[in-house]
């Protein structure tokens, strides 16, 4: 088994890679359950895009109205899923949390999944990050989003109102 190498904060990063693309309902249940696990600091979901409009070909500009593009409720935050969830990356506290997350996935996902540890969020600002966010970028935002997108569109801070 591979050794778990924590980052400088002592945190570890894991990736959940299901063998099927999740539908919105399963993604909502899984993300809600993962949110309940103590010791999850950051999460990123990734998968093929569900565009609002056709962007190529003779149908350019037509509304897609993809049936998988739904609003999901995670804790007190509503998020519009603009992707079909195919990969979830998490930054967590320690190996105990890792095993707890594995149990949650085994309970919720009706098909096999890959579960691995690694370094998935970059820790130093790239040139793109510098161009987009400047020299004083929030380090916890690094690797969380497409550098071309707006932070408000792609990043949700769950429980932000409570902590305020």
């Amino acid at each position: 088994m591979r050794e778990i190498i924590p980052n400088k904060d002592g945190r570890i990063q894991v990736e959940i890679f299901p063998s099927r693309l999740l539908n919105a309902e399963t993604a909502e249940i899984l993300l809600t359950e993962l949110n309940k696990v103590e010791g999850v600091f950051r999460a990123m979901i990734q998968g093929p895009r569900l565009p609002r409009k056709v962007s190529a070909g003779p149908g350019t500009g037509e509304d897609v109205r993809h049936t998988a593009r739904k609003i999901v409720q995670i804790a007190d935050t509503a998020i519009e899923l603009s992707i079909s969830v195919g990969r979830i990356r998490l930054e967590i506290a320690d190996a105990d949390v890792k095993e707890e997350i594995r149990t949650v996935c085994e309970r919720i996902l009706p098909f096999p999944f890959e579960y691995r540890t690694g370094h998935f969020f970059h820790s130093k600002a790239t040139v793109s990050d510098y161009a987009k966010h400047g020299a004083n970028a929030n380090p916890s935002m690094l690797g969380m989003m497409d550098p071309k997108a707006n932070v408000e569109d792609q990043v949700c801070i769950l429980g932000a109102q409570k902590s305020d």
Binding site: R20, L21, N23, T26, P48, V54, S55, G59, R65
Partner: peptide, 26 residues
């Protein structure tokens, strides 16, 4: 798929159907 053919190498959806970005069939 006349355009936006993306999906042939994606994992299948939960229902076993190939992913279609433009939701032409389901």
């Amino acid at each position: 798929r006349g355009c936006t053919v993306h999906g042939h190498s994606c994992r299948l959806q939960e229902d076993g159907v190939m992913f279609d970005m433009l939701d032409r069939r389901r």
